[in-house]
Amino acid sequence: MELRHLRYFAAVADTCHFGQAAATLHVAQPALSYAIRQLEAELDVTLFIRTTRQVSLTPAGEYLRAQAERILAGVDEAVDGVRRIAAGRSGLVRLGLTGIAAFSHLPRIARVVKRELPDVDLHIQSDMLTPGQCDALRAGAIDLGLLRPPAIGDDIETRVIDHEPLVLAVSADHRLAVEPVVSAVDLRNEPFVMYDSRDSAVNDAAMRTCRAAGFVPQRAHQATGTTVLLALVAAGLGVAVLPASVRALPLDGLVVRDLVDADTVEVALAWRRGVDNPVIAAVADTIAAAFETTAFEATAFAPAAQLGARFGDER
């Protein structure tokens, strides 16, 4: 049974008039009548009762009409779905995020993807370090990463979407907690709480800030993640220099202050080079647009078919 014959049958069944159906289908009436006869011969049934005055459905025709509506609706839905996927408007994208980004960046990401790409399912994997995200991208466990560069490996592409200033986190009873603004030189004799990863972009930025102020920070404690790090700071075991998005993580006993001469850290989208999934490209473009600033790179994302040629956690 040809799909064309089924559409012809449905048009006649809806109108019970060969002339009206032919006009709706933009085909000649003799060609339509011949196609219906072909369908009846193939099924070996009579679908229509034809008289000089009217056309009506037989019981077999009534049954086929109900089935044809279901089948044709399914075909139309499949065609629409295929086109949406090809256009990057539908599908699944797995997004990895750094620890703080889940609080500071994810709400905006989720809102904009839902608004601009309502048929895209966004699956979130949070609290992933930059090296872990890069490994997950290579393994195909995630499709996009929101991380802090540099990415690990030449096969990972990144695009910076945000620049964050560093801020100072101290305990509520710390001497600097009452200061509205702090300079890095004020931290010269302070013990620091830092991440335990040697690949931490945040640690590197904190070190640059301290060295520019003329000293090397005293690393008193190390933490595996942001939550533990902030808890150690709130307990008075040291100070921490962190991205400004840490303000999204309020904690009893913790105070965050501006650091006037601090460095900045980048937030970037990351993907595996060579990926040409249009849905991933569409989500990446949508996220980048939501965070667009003058600090963005001048180059734009490539078309979906060239994603691989154009496409890093707190640490």
Score class of each variant (00 low, 15 high):
Leu3Asn: 05
His5Glu: 12
Arg7Lys: 14
Ala11Ile: 05
His17Gly: 09
Ala21Ser: 12
Ala22Trp: 01
Ala28Lys: 14
Ala28Pro: 00
Ala28Glu: 12
Gln29Met: 15
Pro30Val: 13
Gln38Gly: 10
Glu40Leu: 05
Glu42Met: 07
Glu42Lys: 14
Asp44Gly: 11
Thr46Gly: 06
Ile49Met: 09
Gly61Ala: 09
Arg65Pro: 00
Arg70Leu: 13
Leu72Ser: 07
Gly74Cys: 00
Glu77His: 10
Ile85Arg: 15
Ala87Thr: 00
Leu97Asp: 09
Leu97Cys: 06
Ala102Val: 15
Leu106Ser: 07
Arg108Tyr: 03
Ala110Ile: 02
Ala110Thr: 12
Val113Tyr: 00
Leu122Arg: 00
Leu122Gly: 01
Leu129Pro: 09
Asp143Pro: 00
Leu144Asn: 07
Asp155Glu: 14
Glu157Leu: 15
Val167Trp: 11
Leu176Gly: 08
Val178Thr: 13
Ser183Lys: 08
Arg188Glu: 12
Val193Gln: 07
Met194Ser: 11
Asn203Ser: 13
Asp204His: 15
Ala205Gly: 09
Met207Arg: 13
Gly214Leu: 12
Phe215Tyr: 09
Arg219Gln: 11
His221Tyr: 11
Thr224Val: 04
Gly225Cys: 10
Leu232Ser: 04
Gly236Ser: 01
Leu237Phe: 03
Leu237Asp: 06
Ser245Lys: 06
Ser245Tyr: 01
Arg247Ser: 07
Leu251Gln: 10
Asp252Glu: 14
Val255Met: 06
Arg257Leu: 02
Asp261Arg: 01
Asp263Ser: 13
Thr264Ile: 08
Ala268Phe: 12
Leu269Ile: 08
Trp271His: 07
Trp271Cys: 13
Gly274Leu: 10
Val275Glu: 09
Asp276Met: 04
Val279Lys: 03
Ala281Phe: 01
Ala284Glu: 05
Ala288Gln: 07
Phe296Thr: 05
Ala300His: 15
Gln306Asp: 15
Leu307Pro: 08
Arg315Thr: 12
